[in-house]
Computed example of a mutant assay.
Amino acid sequence: MRRKPDVLWILAILFGLGIVTTGYAQSLWAAKADAPVEITQQQQPQLRR
């Protein structure tokens, strides 16, 4: 008879996967932020009184 995996092990694995996924996503985001970006500012119409 095989023992079921402990709930703590499952939580630890999920937590580790979350950390790895977050690190990977942040590295992709940082690489994308290095690309040249044009920043344009829109002027808001001023209200007349």
Rank of each mutant, 00 (worst) to 15 (best):
Q26S: 11
F15Y: 13
K32Q: 14
A30L: 14
R49E: 12
A33T: 07
Y24V: 14
I19A: 07
K4D: 09
W9S: 09
I13E: 02
G18Y: 01
Q26M: 15
G23A: 11
S27N: 09
P36G: 00
T40P: 03
Q44Y: 08
L28M: 13
T21A: 14
L8Y: 06
R49Q: 15
K4Y: 10
T40L: 11
Q26L: 15
V7W: 08
L17I: 11
V20R: 11
M1I: 08
V7R: 09
R48C: 03
L47C: 04
W9R: 08
Q44P: 05
S27V: 05
G16S: 14
Y24Q: 05
T21Y: 08
T21I: 07
L8W: 13
M1C: 06
Q43F: 09
I19H: 00
Q26H: 04
D34T: 10
K4E: 12
Q41V: 13
W9D: 13
R3E: 10
Q43P: 05
A25K: 07
Q26N: 11
L14P: 06
P5C: 02
K4F: 13
A35E: 15
A35K: 15
L17D: 08
P45V: 05
K4P: 03
V7P: 03
T22W: 07
A25H: 05
Q41R: 14
Q46Y: 05
R2T: 04
Q44E: 11
W9E: 12
E38R: 01
G16Y: 02
A31P: 01
T22C: 05
L14H: 11
I19K: 00
L14D: 08
I19C: 09
W9M: 04
L14W: 10
I10E: 09
T40K: 14
P5I: 08
E38P: 02
D6Q: 12
A31L: 10
L28H: 05
P36Y: 01
L14Y: 13
R48H: 08
L17Y: 06
K4N: 06
V37Y: 03
T40H: 10
L17H: 01
A33M: 08
R49F: 15
L17S: 15
R2D: 06
R3H: 09
Q41K: 11
R3S: 13
P36K: 01
D34G: 02
K32T: 09
G16F: 10
W29E: 13
L17T: 14
G18I: 00
R48T: 09
V37L: 15
T40R: 12
P5G: 03
L8F: 13
M1E: 08
K32A: 15
G23T: 05
T22N: 09
L28S: 06
P36R: 00
T22M: 10
Q26V: 15
W29P: 01
A31M: 11
A31N: 10
K32E: 15
G18T: 04
E38V: 07
Y24H: 05
G16W: 02
R3F: 05
I13S: 02
E38I: 06
Q46K: 10
I13H: 00
L11A: 02
Q42C: 03
L8D: 11
I10W: 01
G18V: 00
S27A: 10
K4C: 08
A31I: 09
L11H: 02
